[in-house]
Structures are given as structure tokens and as C-alpha cells.
């Protein structure tokens, strides 16, 4: 039986891994939505938001069907076992899918706030698109992207509905803070439930507080200082 510290630690680690998985495709999609015009843009925008409005357990069931032994990514279909179901990888998959929309929405705003004139100036000075993105757009959007990362991280930390379906609630293997809280509450162990609740409150507060601070600094235009 894992201690409360192990549960906290695994939860933090999985949330961090999830946001690491989300970050690169998330930045790509957010940048495309903020700066590019292309066919199907609204469809893409809607699709990326979908996990935000669907019940998390429904997303969990979709993922479970996808990774099921006879699902599209199941061992009977692709010939080998990806080892996702009921492992820590399933936690990361579920948390990634659930935090993707929130990351993309916040990152998109971060890119939209970058003045396009600065980018065109860089282009007229001869910088290629990649160079402009890396040396102009990305640095100017940094605070917003950090806030997006923290928000996505916070979402992943509290994820429950999709995780318990895809990864289960296996103490010492896939149990997160949320699912440990659920077990304690459903099992009638109020003391443990209260302990976990306090921890969840503290971790959640710290994350949201940091996000707020970063967002404020950005609005006050203190971007250059640290």
C-alpha cells in the first residue's frame, strides 16, 4: 500500500509527463490557430476543444475502446501489446487528452497577443519563418505559454473521470490523488479522504496562484524583468 507521499509524488510526476507530451503538438496547434488561415480551421479548433465539454468518463470510454485488446490500438489488431491499459502510461494518456484543450486555448491567446508587426519586421530583415518563430514569436509568448503549461498541469493533476476508466484505480500502480480520494470517500474512510482533500487543495492552490502571478505580470508589461 503506497503512502500518501508516494501518491502525491506519482500524481505530480504523471501530470508533469502529461504536459510534456502535450506541449509540442499543443504549441504547434495553438500557433496554427492563432496565425494561420487554412481550410478546416474551425473544425480543428472545435475538435481540440471537445474533451473540455464531453463528460470525462465518456472520453475515458472512448480511449478504453481504442486501447482495448480488440480496439484499433489493441494487441489483437496491431500484433503486440502497447502496455498502455492499466499502467502509468494510461494515466499519462488520459491526462494528456484531457489537458490538451486547455493548454491549446491558453497558448493560442499567448500567440495572438504577440504583435504581428514585430514578426514582419524580422521577416523584412531576412529571417526565415522558423527563425522568426524561434527568436521572435516564442520569446514574446513565453509568459503566456508558461501559464498555459501550468493550467494544463493543473488540469492533469485533478483529472479523474477519464483516468479511472483507462488506467483503473490501482494503488501503487495507477492510483492518483483524485482516485485515492475517491476510494477513501466511497469506502467510508473520512480521515484519509480529508487528508487527501487538504493535499489536493494545497497543490491546486499553488498551481493556480503561480498561474495568476504569471498572467498578471504579463498584463502589467513586466515581460523584460525577472
Amino acid at each position: 500500500m503506497p503512502t500518501i507521499y508516494e501518491t502525491i509524488f506519482s500524481t505530480l510526476l504523471w501530470a508533469a509527463l502529461s504536459i510534456a507530451v502535450v506541449a509540442i503538438p499543443g504549441v504547434g496547434v495553438a500557433y496554427a490557430l492563432a496565425r494561420k488561415e487554412f481550410a478546416g480551421k474551425h473544425v480543428l479548433s472545435t475538435l481540440t476543444t471537445l474533451p473540455l465539454v464531453l463528460p470525462p468518463t465518456a472520453v475515458g470510454y472512448l480511449l478504453l475502446r481504442l486501447f482495448a485488446d480488440n480496439g484499433w490500438l489493441g494487441k489483437e489488431r496491431i500484433g503486440f501489446d502497447l502496455g498502455v491499459l492499466f499502467s502509468w502510461k494510461a494515466v499519462v494518456v488520459a491526462c494528456s487528452v484531457m489537458s490538451f484543450p486547455i493548454f491549446v486555448r491558453a497558448a493560442r491567446v499567448a500567440f495572438e497577443e504577440v504583435n504581428p508587426r514585430l514578426e514582419s519586421v524580422a521577416r523584412t530583415l531576412g529571417a526565415g519563418p522558423w527563425r522568426v518563430f524561434v527568436s521572435v514569436t516564442l520569446p514574446l509568448a513565453t509568459r503566456g505559454l508558461v501559464a498555459a503549461t501550468l493550467l494544463g498541469f493543473a488540469r492533469a493533476l485533478g483529472e479523474f473521470g477519464a483516468t479511472i476508466v483507462l488506467a483503473g484505480n490501482i494503488p501503487g500502480r495507477t492510483q492518483t490523488l483524485s482516485s485515492a480520494l475517491f476510494s477513501a470517500q466511497q469506502g467510508g474512510n473520512d480521515d484519509r479522504a480529508n487528508q487527501l482533500l487538504i493535499v489536493a487543495l494545497l497543490v491546486g492552490f499553488a498551481t493556480v496562484y503561480t498561474t495568476e502571478r504569471l498572467a498578471r505580470k504579463r498584463l502589467n508589461g513586466e515581460g523584460g524583468q525577472s
Binding site: 482495448a68 485488446d69 491499459l85 483503473g168 501503487g172 469506502g187
Partner: peptide, 20 residues
């Protein structure tokens, strides 16, 4: 012994999807 605790509906879906 390794446990998995969830609502009975969730567990049933998991057992049907993957025999673990």
C-alpha cells in the same frame, strides 16, 4: 494482491475491454 477500485460499471467495461 493488487486492487482496482471503481464503480461496478467502470470495472465491468474494463474487464470486457481487456482481460486483466
Amino acid at each position: 494482491v493488487e486492487y482496482n477500485f471503481a464503480g461496478s460499471n467502470t470495472l465491468a467495461q474494463q474487464i470486457v475491454s481487456a482481460s486483466r
